[in-house]
Simulated assay, not measured.
Amino acid sequence: MSEAQERAFAVHSEFYMLVPPRSLAATSVHPDARLDHRATYGRDAPLIVEIGSGQGHAIIHAATSRPGDDFLAVDVFRAGLARTMLDAERAGVRNLRLIEANAPEVLETLLPDGAADEVWVFFPDPWHKNKHTKRRLVKPPFGDIVAGALRDGGVVRLATDWEDYALQMRDVLDAAPDLERGFEGDWAPRFDGRVRTAFERKGAAKGRDIRDLTYRRKPRP
């Protein structure tokens, strides 16, 4: 990381970073770890979780424009988390927390059942080489995992510029028994709250179509 990013961790991590009990790996979450929303944010408010927050552009914009909601950025890219803290501090964002951890463990373990109002997965690594596609985030059992983290009626929003990954995402979430489509036709309309990031601009510049998906959590029995 750069000196500025190292300073961000030294100065701002006490407020912004959540450090859960770990299991074996440095980015793991211990099976007994649970997020206490009120203790973390100091209030009860809707929780929006972004998986793969990158440099933090989308989630900082959202946290700034939606002060009544709370936001959690999840990533394993340490330099990106540092950049997010720097930009959040400059913007005076106080309704945002970050966690350096594996996304499925955050959704399945750290978040209590039904804790999230929305989960965002925008432009995850496509692992586009055939030998690497097994590393993709959105594959079985991701649909069941994200459904467990969402409250009844909660929404998971996804976007990618890789057609075959978009098709895989749709197949995975269509197969999740606790989720239902929140769109008609082949693809969801663009989510107004998703700012145009460098990843999206790069994909569009190469002529790749951006595809969005939206699914809603069905009521629990």
Rank of each mutant, 00 (worst) to 15 (best):
E50W: 08
H132M: 10
A62T: 10
R7Y: 11
M1C: 12
E184Y: 07
A115E: 00
G203H: 02
V106C: 11
K134A: 14
D161W: 04
K129I: 03
E50S: 13
A8T: 02
G54T: 01
P67E: 03
P126Q: 04
V49P: 04
G42D: 07
Y41S: 06
D144C: 05
H12K: 12
I59G: 01
P21C: 10
E108T: 07
R97A: 00
R135K: 07
T40F: 09
F142M: 11
A103E: 01
P112V: 05
S13W: 09
H132F: 09
I145Q: 02
P20H: 14
A115F: 01
G154K: 00
F77K: 06
L18F: 09
P124C: 09
D117P: 04
R201G: 13
Y215L: 08
R43Y: 13
P112G: 11
D113A: 10
R201L: 14
S23T: 06
S65W: 05
K202H: 13
R136D: 05
T40G: 06
D212T: 09
L72S: 01
M169P: 03
T133R: 15
E108C: 07
L72N: 01
A82N: 02
D178G: 08
R190N: 08
V93I: 09
L158E: 01
V19T: 15
F199K: 03
V74I: 04
T197L: 09
H61G: 12
W127K: 02
D174C: 14
W187M: 08
D192A: 15
A149C: 11
F199C: 05
R78E: 13
S2F: 05
D125R: 09
F15H: 02
F9H: 10
D75P: 02
D152K: 03
R211L: 04
T84E: 03
R7K: 11
D32W: 07
M17T: 13
W120D: 03
S28G: 04
A116N: 00
D75K: 10
E6A: 15
S13C: 08
H132L: 11
A25I: 08
K129A: 06
D164K: 14
G56Y: 00
R78W: 09
S13D: 11
Q55G: 09
R151N: 01
V138F: 02
H132C: 02
D144H: 06
P141I: 03
D36K: 07
A8I: 02
R78I: 13
A166P: 04
R194P: 07
E184K: 11
L96C: 03
T64D: 08
V119H: 00
K134F: 12
